[in-house]
């Protein structure tokens, strides 16, 4: 066990525990806050792995953006004491499927990479920037288009444009 391994073990255990709590907590707000810890811990894992740029982007977009959106959605859709979890039998079945998937993925992935220690030889931020604006420039530009489309679509869906009431109101206004 090297120092990096111990560091990763600590951050990874924190991440795994908060991820499990995020999907099992009965209080909706607590689940969202555990998601913050899990995604922040994942950013810490990226840091330990030596990918600083990805860690910072993860922190900015997930903890700064996505989780705030999730918290807003939770508060806007507050609805009395609605049950959060499925029935006990359903939960057991879901747990069996999830445990099976975990074992399957864990065995397969560790078999692929092996348990030998390897040096961290990842690209630094300069290499990543050069690669994004060189080889990956077209996917990058397409992503900006995707973000624009997602913005417009989210506004359209959330405002209820094209719904029955809107069409009715629009036709009523016509002389």
């Amino acid at each position: 066990m090297s120092g990096l391994d111990l560091l990763f073990l600590a951050v990874g255990l924190l991440t795994a525990a908060s991820a499990v709590l995020a999907v099992t907590s009965r209080v909706v707000l607590h689940a969202a806050l555990w998601l913050v810890v899990a995604l922040g811990g994942l950013a810490g894992c990226y840091l330990v792995l030596g990918a600083e740029l990805v860690a910072l982007v993860q922190l900015l977009i997930y903890v700064g953006g996505v989780v705030v959106l999730v918290l807003f959605a939770l508060m806007l859709t507050r609805h009395g004491n609605a049950p959060v979890q499925a029935s006990a039998g359903h939960r057991v079945l879901a747990g069996v499927v999830a445990a099976g998937l975990t074992v399957l993925l864990g065995v397969t992935l560790t078999a692929v990479v092996g348990w030998t220690r390897v040096p961290v030889t990842g690209p630094d931020s300069t290499d990543i920037g050069t690669a994004i604006f060189g080889t990956w420039v077209w996917p990058f530009e397409l992503l900006s288009l995707l973000l624009l489309l997602a913005l417009v679509a989210a506004v359209a869906v959330a405002r209820g444009a094209g719904s029955v009431e809107d069409v009715g109101a629009a036709t009523e206004e016509e002389p």
Partner: peptide, 16 residues
């Protein structure tokens, strides 16, 4: 030096 199996195990737990 790092053991790449540890992040992979964490990924499996996260996916589960």
């Amino acid at each position: 030096m790092i053991t790449p199996a540890l992040p992979m195990l964490l990924a499996a737990v996260l996916a589960g």
